[in-house]
Design a binder for these strands. Structure first.
Lengths: 194, 194
DNA sequence: GTGAATTTAGGTCGAATGTCCTAATTTTGT
DNA sequence: ACAAAATTAGGACATTCGACCTAAATTCAC
């Protein structure tokens, strides 16, 4: 892997685990195994690293969403993929929260220029979910509503899970989210028949 | 107001607006209007200030919950008070997120000793909501489930609202939460009749 | 009123930060 | 093979941080 990508991937992990502001050049350099001075050749400022990290996350998210769209047959299965990240990443979430939500929150408090850039990560999920709910037969405004609701729920579950450290809670909420989507699919199919 | 309380209140605000780690002694001193050196007499370390801030928030939260319990006639009205903080504090939430969730998240990433102390802020809300749902006629495990679900939703709405900056979204979610509670109250009253 | 206790201001300290520079080292193009 | 370019290491820099100290100012007790 190129050094630049190596730096970006390491910064991505450290920003997630420890926070953007707390993570120093020295921390990243130590983990990558290069000298601090080497940074300036790849990234002029720390903000440049942040931009690269956000771009990396955008790319990884797009890949993940595409994989879900291709891998699952029905919109319902695809939405289930989204919901199940809460279980698949439960260990990391319990420790560090949601990588998107915590970054947006921190950048918001720092009033950082990249906060809107980070927020586009959210819209990536919203847009994808809107597509799925539309494919499920929802009207545009309903699809948007359901998509945002699901995103908010996943954020909230991450946040509370980090505080309470309770696996059962996550399972319960995931089941509720699955029921929520199944109910929408059911009513939509009824509507279609009438 | 005493200097100590003045420091604590100012630190409370700055920790919320800018984050704990980012906020420096100098920042607090400047806003309070005292010299930096004066701190050491009131708080030995920055962590001591954090402890005092968490205690302050615990006290303020307890007062607020007591006020809601006394001010509202029915459990349903009391739960509505909780839900409506999302609207009452919408400006601050859109800027800085939820004061509890963002603090727990930051302390979790810092692996700070006070993270569990901060997490008790969450349990304060959970316990209070459990009481309300129990008064509404819910079984203990149901009450706990509903309480945590509502808390997670409020957290998620705060998080997504900060990213999307959309007032309509908050209104929609608040209405959904109110419907959720109303539905529980309705089914409970039906159960009671049978 | 006066001595003791509390509170305050201002400065110092080492450590750590982001940024930047320079000189080696390695890689690349021909 | 060799010059040019890219990459790397290590250190210098001004600044800021939490922590700590001392002395002046203020408040309090009697």
């Amino acid at each position: 892997m190129s050094t630049r990508k190596n730096i970006t991937a390491t910064a991505d992990e450290l920003f997630y685990h420890n926070g953007f502001d707390v993570t120093s050049f020295a921390d990243i350099a130590k983990q990558v195994g290069i000298s601090r001075g080497n940074f300036y050749h790849h990234f002029k400022t720390k903000d440049d690293i942040l931009e690269a990290v956000i771009d990396l996350r955008l790319a990884k998210t797009r890949d993940m969403l595409r994989l879900w769209a291709e891998g699952a047959e029905t919109p319902l299965d695809r939405i289930s993929c989204f919901i199940h990240i809460l279980i698949r990443n439960r260990r990391e979430i319990a420790k560090y929260g949601c990588p998107v939500g915590t970054l947006v929150s921190e950048l918001g408090k720092l009033d950082h220029v990249s906060k809107s850039h980070a927020a586009t990560l959210f819209t990536l999920f919203v847009d994808w979910l809107v597509t799925q709910f539309s494919d499920l037969g929802c009207e545009p405004q309903d699809a948007r509503h359901h998509a945002r609701h699901l995103l908010a729920l996943s954020q909230g579950v991450s946040s509370v899970a980090q505080a309470l450290q309770d696996d059962v809670f996550v399972d319960d909420e995931v089941n509720m989210m699955l029921d929520y989507v199944a109910e929408i699919a059911r009513t939509n199919s009824l509507k279609r028949k009438s």
